[in-house]
């Protein structure tokens, strides 16, 4: 049974990866907006922002930019899933003797692959803009792990959106607040510069702990307790959105 899940997931992932390879613009589009934001913040606003950390501004804001990249990239998963359901191929798969969960996992793994490519593109541009890190290999692996977790968590949110959407636009609308969240966090400016209630929100929402953790890892600093808060958020969102997505999917295909 479990070998069937693996082989079906592999076949279906191959299918949706092909979709991405045939329209690589989705990966490029995903990377373009964050890169534009990065240029804007570093070369326009950055000079006026005092992060109080002494490091270059591109170093300061890259973690937030990476999260924005992923938050906008997962919208394509909702979009593709919605198109599958509309087009009837979803019903075809559901009426075939294949492992039930493989249809969703294929989309999730494809999202992971596509987002990691987008993230690599953004990091590449950041390096050209002067991003420097002293991170060791293990720190890089840890950063990758956090980004993978973040992608998985948001992709399962995207699966919920894709499964419940009534229109194409509705399928990807969920990602707008997710893209906006890093702006009200420590991603671009220190939370201490914000007025009381906003600062309170910024300090207690998931993005700040994740951004701070990644930033500390890039700077080879101690991550402190922040990493546990970040992991708790990531795993929590992942488990809850996974459970809701699977429940919705079960109801959809009975």
């Amino acid at each position: 049974m479990s070998t069937q899940v693996l082989s079906d997931t592999r076949v279906l992932t191959g299918r949706s990866l092909r979709h991405i390879l045939r329209s690589p613009d989705t990966i490029i589009t995903t990377a373009v907006t964050p890169i534009a934001l990065m240029l804007l913040f570093v070369y326009v606003f950055g000079g006026a922002i005092n992060t109080g950390s002494g490091e270059s501004y591109v170093n300061y804001m890259l973690p937030g930019i990476l999260l924005i990249t992923i938050a906008s990239g997962v919208a394509y998963t909702a979009y593709r899933l919605f198109l599958d359901m509309q087009g009837g191929i979803f019903d075809r798969f559901a009426s075939m003797p294949i492992a039930r969960s493989s249809v969703l996992w294929a989309h999730v793994l494809t999202s992971l692959a596509a987002n990691m490519v987008s993230v690599a593109l953004v990091i590449g541009v950041a390096l050209m803009m002067g991003f420097r890190t002293s991170a060791s290999l293990s720190a890089w692996l840890a950063v990758t792990g956090i980004l993978v977790l973040f992608t998985l968590a948001l992709t399962w949110v995207a699966v919920i959106a894709g499964l419940s959407a009534k229109t194409v636009d509705g399928a990807s609308a969920f990602s707008y607040p997710l893209i906006f969240l890093p702006f009200i966090s420590s991603a671009f400016v220190p939370t201490s510069s914000m007025p009381g209630p906003v600062a309170w929100f910024a300090e207690n929402q998931p993005v700040t702990s994740i951004v701070d953790t990644i930033r500390a890892m890039f700077a080879s600093e101690s991550v402190g307790n922040g990493i546990w808060i970040a992991l708790a958020w990531l795993v929590g969102i992942l488990l809850i959105s996974y459970a809701i997505a699977i429940a919705k999917y079960r109801r959809k295909i009975r």
Binding site: R18, Q86, G87, G88, I89, R92, S95
Partner: peptide, 16 residues
């Protein structure tokens, strides 16, 4: 599901 095939109302082909 082992015994059937469904051809739905909208052609269920992958256009890509």
């Amino acid at each position: 599901r082992e015994s059937i095939s469904l051809t739905g109302q909208f052609a269920a082909v992958d256009e890509v």
